[in-house]
Structures are given as structure tokens and as C-alpha cells.
Nucleic acid binder design. Structure first.
Length: 494
RNA sequence: GAGGGCGUAGCUCAGUCGGUAGAGCAACGGCCUUUUAAGCCGUGGGUCCUGGGUUCGAGCCCCAGCGCCCUCACCA
């Protein structure tokens, strides 16, 4: 960057030091968040132009707006809750503080001690009695009105994005609230929160390529988990009857508005339960999250209005294929023909994979409102129990919202013999052979006996996207993966 | 990995047919005690993403590269 902007601020920093101010200040206790200040102001019934001299108020935050009128100035101080107007009058603060004020810039972190009042136009204002520089900002912040728009810079300098764009802060605060509400809900159902390995000698529980790493002392290859599933089920064997984990998973696959190489997944398992329990929990959990973040059950998402009121629709996989693809999913030849008409390559692929490609192409675009898709072809579901009256159908649902998979659940397979067989079978057309790995120890665990159980996985990032109307997964992950950018100004980082 | 789009001042953006690089905000100097994107007067600020090429002359045209966004594929 051109160094004059930086130099101007450095010059002020030197001057501040000369005047005895620490440009990298210290503890500034007893401040109130701006939201609390606003709440406290209400019962005071301050008239426009009035001040209340009785109580001193201390606030701290970043200067995001500054209007200087010579001997009087207004500035907006931003904290994690929002903005608060500060009034600085030369008459009230004295010449020394005014000199300090003159050396402040947009972006500086400031502590204010003052009294509450309202301006002539009625805006709540803390009239400063003293000012304390808390940290000098050396770089000019982005424009006050448009903020930081460049998506690349927003992700690379999320710290700027957060203090400049209040919507971004709100989104991540909503993310926190959603996750909190899920924890609370599951705890209320007596689920135990557990932690299982991120570094795994075998990657299992999903079909995806893993990231590979190496442990030096043990001289062994390790994989970053693609899923915690097989460990959580081992805990069922051990007698933990209801467990959940909110885990960061890593998949070495493509990046898209709905995929980040690391993402957050909720997985839970309930002994002596099944698919129907998982449906109830899914609906209850989403309801709990919506109640906590507010905004109602009918929510905008892009061009859609999504109705999250339970119960969600339940639709059979083959019925949906019939309705939207006009094809009988059990008629392999008809499905092949449909796939061919869509230019979907089917060469050497198993029927189940072809069917699913047709489903993704023709059915998913219609699944806007929350829909439990049930009765999946068993071949697609290696860890799922089959229906007792029809072993070709798995007891599984996927929850679709806004044409995207949000959750996935099954009645868990606990028959070690069947598990051993499905582990060994690799479907043709299902990615490459690194995806399914035989986990002998997991089968042994099943041989000790895993209780019949229901299991559920929910993509937390996607849930947050849906509930905050975020178009990209990068909008709900604080530091999404970006390629490093070498540049003179950027130095080596990020 | 394939296709398409974008990259100009600290930020948000204009830039016509290839002919001296522009605005607003921010910055700097001055005025201003109730502003709401405050206002007024003045000043400075550019690796036009990078590297080649075409041309008398390139921000603009061509080639290559880098980064980001979108679509598709893998995946959730």
C-alpha cells in the first residue's frame, strides 16, 4: 500500500507517545456492552437534548465513524453488539483530551468515560468526560458506507470483515447460538458429548478421499477423519447409550459454495432407537435452534421461503424418482435409458450409482422445502440396516432443504457378518478404491454386540447457511481455505 | 480437473474508438459546538494483478501465468 496513509498514522502514534499516551493501552475495566447501554437508557426516558449526569458510563470499542465540527465531534464506537454514538465536546473534556481526540483515526480502539444523553435529534449518545486510547490502528479501514466488499479480501482478512460488516458478525453470532442450542437440546435428551480421534489410522464412516499425514515417532501414516462414525458406534458397544460429537471433518475433495475441505458435522447415536427417533430429533433440534436465533419458522433462503415447521414431508426415494424422473427405479434398463437421455455417463457403473445420479439430476432440484427422503436402495448404504420385509431397501433418510442434503440418518447396521460383507464390496462408479476401507477392529466391536440404534449426521455449516440465509459455506466458516497469495504488501501471510 | 467471468488509489467503483489515469469515501491543510454516509475551501495519493507480445502509442488488443467468483465433476 502507498505508505503515506500508514505514515500519517505512525506520525500520530509518535505524537501520542510524546503526549504520554500509550498507543497500545491497557486494561480498561467496568465497560458496558453497547446493547446494555441501550437497555439501561430506556427507563431514563431521556428527552432530545437532555443528559443524565448522575451515572457514569464506560464503554470501549472501535471508532467506525467520525464527524468533527471543530470544537464538537461525534463518533461511533463499535463493539461486538453494535454501535454507540459518542459525543466529544472540547468544553466538557478539556484541552488535553481534545488534543488526544485530534490524534484519533478511524479504526482506533477507544475507551470512553462519560454520561448518557440524547442529542437534539434524539440519538442516544455517551457524552465523553474522558478519553483513553486503547489501541492505535495503523492501517486505514475500508470505506464507512460500502464496507469491505471484495470477497477475496473478506475471507483473507476476516478480522477486518468482522469489524467492518455488522452482518458478518451477526452471522457468526447466529452460528454460535445455533450450536449452543443443539448442545442444549441434546443434553436435555441425555446425550453425552464425546470426543473421538481426528487423527485416525484408518479413515471410515463415509465415502470420501482423506487428507494424509504422518506421525514421526510412531512412523505411521495417519488420516484426518472424514467422519467420526465408526468411533461413536464403538462407544455404543461400550455401553454409552446416547452419544454425540460436533466434529471438524476433513475431506480431500472439491471446493464449492456448499463444500469446504474442513467442515463441521454433528453426529449422534441412540441405542435402542431407530430412524423414527432420528426424525424427531432432527425436527426438534432445528426447531430449538430457530427458537433461539429468532426470525420464525418460515425463513428466506435466496429466492425461497423455507418453512421449517414440523413435521417435514416424508417421501419415498422411488416415489420421487417416479414423480420427477418419470422412471421406475427398480427397472434398471429404464433408469439406464433415463441416464443416457441426460448425458450421464453410466459405463461400467453399478445400477445403484446410476439411479442415484438420475435422482441427483432430476429430483434434488425439486426438494426445496424440508423433505425426509426415505427408503433408499440398500446398495448405496453400507452402514445401514435393511428393512426387515425388503432387504433391498435401507432404513435411511436424507433430509433435503433448498435442494441440498442437510442431514443423513439410519437405523444402524449391527450385524457383523453383513457389515463384513458390505465393507468388502466396492461399487463400480463410486469414486476410487481408496474410499472404502475395511476396519477389522470395528467389525470385532460389532461381534461383541452393538445395541440396535439410530444414528444421525447433520451438516452444521449448511444448517447455519440455511438459517442465516448465507449463499456460500464460506460465509459461515470464519477462515475458509484460500490459496496463499504472494505479494509485496501481503508479505508471506496469509 | 474442465468451461465462463472478474482483477484500476487504502476502500467502493467509472474509464467511450487504442491517444495526458478519474469520482466518492478515506488521508493531509484550513473553517465549523448537536452531526446521522455532516458540510464548505484547498492539497496530495496509481506496479491499471504479474510477465511477455502487437502498435508511433496499451488500463483497453493478443499470449502465458497468478488470485478470486460462478457452473460442472468428485463430495456432504
Amino acid at each position: 500500500m502507498s505508505s503515506d496513509l500508514l505514515e500519517a498514522r505512525l506520525a500520530k502514534l509518535r505524537r501520542l507517545r510524546e503526549l504520554g499516551h500509550d498507543p497500545y493501552g491497557r486494561r480498561f475495566p467496568a465497560t458496558l456492552p453497547s446493547a446494555i447501554v441501550r437497555r439501561k437508557a430506556e427507563p431514563l426516558q431521556l428527552a432530545p437534548g437532555a443528559t443524565d449526569d448522575r451515572a457514569r458510563i464506560r464503554v470501549a470499542g472501535r471508532i467506525v465513524l467520525l464527524r468533527d465540527m471543530g470544537k464538537l465531534a461525534f463518533l461511533h464506537l463499535r463493539d461486538a453488539d453494535g454501535d454507540l454514538q459518542i459525543g466529544v465536546s472540547r468544553r466538557d473534556v478539556g484541552d488535553a483530551a481534545w488534543e488526544l481526540f485530534k490524534l484519533l483515526d478511524l479504526g482506533d480502539l477507544l475507551g470512553v468515560d462519560g454520561v448518557l444523553g440524547r442529542t437534539k435529534t434524539g440519538e442516544l449518545t455517551v457524552w465523553a468526560r474522558s478519553l483513553t486510547l486503547l489501541t492505535k490502528c495503523l492501517r486505514p479501514p475500508p470505506e464507512k458506507w460500502h464496507g469491505l466488499q471484495d470477497v477475496d479480501l473478506r475471507y483473507r482478512r476476516r478480522y477486518v470483515d468482522l469489524f467492518v460488516n455488522p452482518d458478518v458478525m451477526r452471522t457468526f453470532r447466529a452460528r454460535l447460538t445455533i450450536i449452543e442450542s443443539i448442545r442444549e437440546y441434546l443434553r436435555s435428551l441425555d446425550f453425552w458429548e464425546v470426543e473421538t480421534p481426528t487423527l485416525q489410522p484408518l479413515h471410515g464412516g463415509a465415502a470420501a478421499r482423506p487428507f494424509t499425514t504422518h506421525h514421526n515417532t510412531l512412523d505411521m501414516t495417519l488420516f484426518l477423519r472424514i467422519s467420526p462414525e465408526l468411533y461413536l458406534k464403538r462407544l455404543l458397544v461400550g455401553g454409552m447409550e446416547r452419544v454425540f460429537e460436533i466434529s471438524r471433518n476433513f475431506r480431500n475433495e472439491g471446493i464449492s459454495p456448499r463444500h469446504n475441505p474442513e467442515f463441521t458435522m454433528l453426529e449422534l447415536y441412540q441405542a435402542y432407537g431407530d430412524l423414527s427417533d432420528m426424525m424427531e430429533i432432527t425436527e426438534g433440534m432445528i426447531r430449538a435452534a430457530i427458537n433461539r436465533i429468532g426470525g420464525g419458522a418460515i425463513r428466506p433462503f435466496g429466492v425461497h421461503a423455507i418453512n421449517f415447521n414440523p413435521p417435514f414431508a416424508r417421501r419415498r426415494y422411488f416415489d420421487l424418482l417416479q414423480e420427477f424422473a418419470g422412471v421406475d427405479g427398480r427397472d434398471a434398463a429404464a433408469v439406464q435409458a433415463r441416464a443416457a437421455s441426460l448425458n450421464i455417463p453410466t459405463q461400467g457403473m453399478d445400477d445403484a450409482i446410476v439411479i442415484n445420479k438420475v435422482f441427483e439430476a432430476l429430483v434434488e432440484p425439486h426438494l426445496v422445502q424440508p423433505t425426509f427422503v426415505i427408503d433408499y436402495p440398500a446398495d448405496l448404504c453400507p452402514l445401514t440396516r435393511r428393512k426387515p420385509d425388503d432387504p433391498s431397501i435401507a432404513e435411511r433418510f436424507e433430509l433435503y432443504v433448498a435442494c441440498t442434503e442437510l442431514a443423513n440418518a439410519y437405523t444402524e447396521l449391527n450385524d457383523p457378518a453383513v457389515q463384513r460383507e458390505t465393507f468388502t464390496r466396492q461399487l463400480r462408479g463410486e469414486g476410487d478404491e481408496t474410499m472404502r476401507v475395511f476396519d477389522e477392529d470395528f467389525v470385532m466391536a460389532l461381534e461383541y454386540g452393538m445395541p440396535p440404534a439410530g444414528g444421525l449426521g447433520v451438516g452444521i455449516d449448511r444448517l447455519v447457511m440455511l438459517l442465516t440465509n448465507a449463499p456460500s459455506i464460506r460465509d459461515v466458516i470464519l477462515f475458509p481455505l484460500q490459496r496463499p497469495r504472494a505479494g509485496a504488501d501481503e508479505a508471506q501471510h496469509p
